[in-house]
Design a protein around this nucleic acid. Structure first.
Length: 454
RNA sequence: GGCGCGGUAGCCAAGUGGUAAGGCCGAGCUCUGCAAAAGCUCUAUGCGCCGGUUCAAUUCCGGCCCGCGCCUCCA
């Protein structure tokens, strides 16, 4: 069965298939803005897209999928950060790009085949803006910025159904002095010395120096790396409007072709039932969770435990659940015979994934097999499941916490008491250790110490 | 106000016009001095509320209540 995926434009389930003669499936996923560490909500989208990428590779072949994901390294937020820190833009974006890569690796997300940056594609963006200006879809404003003229694209709003909305009047309108219409959006933003520092490039012909607007980078980079028509374009639901709507307008007006054959949007992660925010204290980065002692793989599991098109409520309890679930998978893997067994034992897992990336359904099917025991199950088949879900079941590299001397001393005393069969003392010392935040695990030949989860 | 998503056991979460997957937690048991680990077993007559359609609805239709998100640069 082909992979069926919900298409946001037609609002229906559609099969995924390469549309180009070379059989290469062209897949673009909107990437992060590198001005701060990505949070786990961002990573929900990226891990879901990673499963999609893996599934596509199994479906079409590893060499028949081209996956592109951009890095937004110049925009209001990145520039804002340079002003705040008084450091060069490149320094800041490099730092957070490195962190993003490290987090992705920890979460076992495959690197995209191409990871283009906005600043690396200024020329391509300027070319596209000039194309739009020539065709009459864009105009230079009084301040030297360039705006897309929405009224020239009748198809606008098909994706987000914007025409059915009432545009709420916001403060943004105050910013619209130079626009012909409030709804027109920036393709090129004229340089403002007091805000932009030294971030500027020569503009499109007829415009001032400055920097690209946000939306144009995706249109330009897609055109360069994947072509005018791609097979799948994905991102978080928040990008539906205006970002993706604007991309469609830019690309289709410039190229005169269909931009993307299929649109897919994953829903947001909630934390404790509400949207994440620093002020609510429910904002987590990957490091926040690993600092609490959770493994990155458990974070991945938790992020994949809900249907991607449904909001997922993340709680710290889900981290416990994920750690335990992974432990069971690890034990099951170890118990599998090296050869033999049914190759299609996990057919139901793949059926669920092919059915609109039903991840909870797939996990349910997976555990149904696991609960029946390892007998007669192919190890290779299980490993294909691990691959598609991106679960690395290596023993978790539990960072060896430094054990304070006082704790080590208590543990040694308890072990001695236990050896002497003075169980009352041993139990009292176990309580002392627990009170100090440490758990002592006995084995026949010795013991180990682990910090209790915070 | 507009658009969209959702309300299923203590928590997370699939799913179906024919009588509720799965994970976690919890409980019991086995094994262990204790604890942990591991294994086995059990855990929703019920799927927001009220009507309707139907032989049959959690699943379809209508109304209502509640929650969440988005509405110009947030994955």
């Amino acid at each position: 069965m082909a992979i069926q995926l919900f298409d946001s434009l037609s609002r229906s389930l559609q099969p995924l298939k390469p549309s180009h003669a070379d059989g290469v499936f062209r897949f673009y996923n909107c990437g992060p803005t590198v001005y701060a560490p990505a949070h786990i909500g961002n990573f929900r989208t990226f891990t879901v897209n990673d499963v999609l990428r893996r599934l596509l590779e199994l479906e079409f072949g590893a060499g028949k999928v081209k996956h592109v994901r951009n890095l937004t390294d110049v925009d209001d937020r990145t520039i804002g950060q340079t002003q705040k820190e008084k450091r060069p833009l490149a320094e800041i974006t490099q730092k957070w790009t490195d962190k993003f890569h490290a987090d992705c690796d920890a979460l076992n997300c495959l690197r995209p085949h191409v990871e283009p940056t906005a600043t690396g594609h200024i020329r391509e963006q300027v070319d596209m803006i000039e194309c739009l200006m020539q065709k009459g879809n864009a105009y230079r404003a009084a301040d030297g910025s360039v705006y897309f003229k929405l009224s020239t694209f009748p198809g606008y709003g098909a994706l987000s159904r914007i025409k059915e909305r009432e545009l709420k009047v916001t403060n943004a309108v105050a910013d619209a002095d130079h626009k012909d219409s409030v709804s027109d959006f920036a393709l090129w933003k004229a340089y403002k010395p007091e805000e932009d520092g030294d971030v500027k490039w020569p503009g499109p012909k007829g415009a001032s120096e400055g920097r690209p607007g946000w939306h144009i980078e995706c249109s330009a980079m897609i055109k360069k790396h994947l072509g005018e028509t791609i097979d799948l374009h994905t991102g978080g639901v928040d990008l539906l409007f205006p970002h993706h709507e604007n991309e469609i307008a830019q690309s289709q007006c410039c190229n005169g072709t269909t931009f993307a054959n299929h649109w897919y949007h994953s829903e947001h992660l909630l934390v404790d039932g509400t949207t994440m925010s620093k002020s609510k204290g429910n904002y987590y980065t990957l490091s926040d969770l690993t600092d609490k002692g959770y493994s990155p793989m458990a974070v991945r599991y938790a992020l994949l435990s809900g249907h991607p098109r449904k909001q997922l409520n993340f709680t710290l309890d889900s981290m416990h659940a994920a750690e335990s679930a992974l432990k069971h998978l690890r034990a099951f893997h170890a118990a599998l015979a090296p050869t033999g067994g049914s190759e299609n034992a996990f057919a139901a897992v793949f059926a669920a994934l092919h059915d609109d990336l039903n991840l909870p359904g797939a996990l349910g099917a997976l555990f149904t097999v696991v609960n029946q025991g390892p007998a007669g199950v192919s190890r290779a088949a299980f490993e294909r499941v691990l691959f598609v879900l991106g679960f690395k079941l290596d023993a978790p590299a539990a960072p060896k916490a430094d054990i304070p001397a006082a704790i080590a001393d208590l543990a040694a005393k308890r072990w001695a008491a236990k050896q002497a069969k003075d169980f009352a003392t041993a139990d009292a010392l176990r309580k002392d250790l627990a009170a100090a935040g440490w758990s002592m695990l006995d084995r026949k030949d010795g013991y180990s110490l682990e910090p209790l989860k915070k």
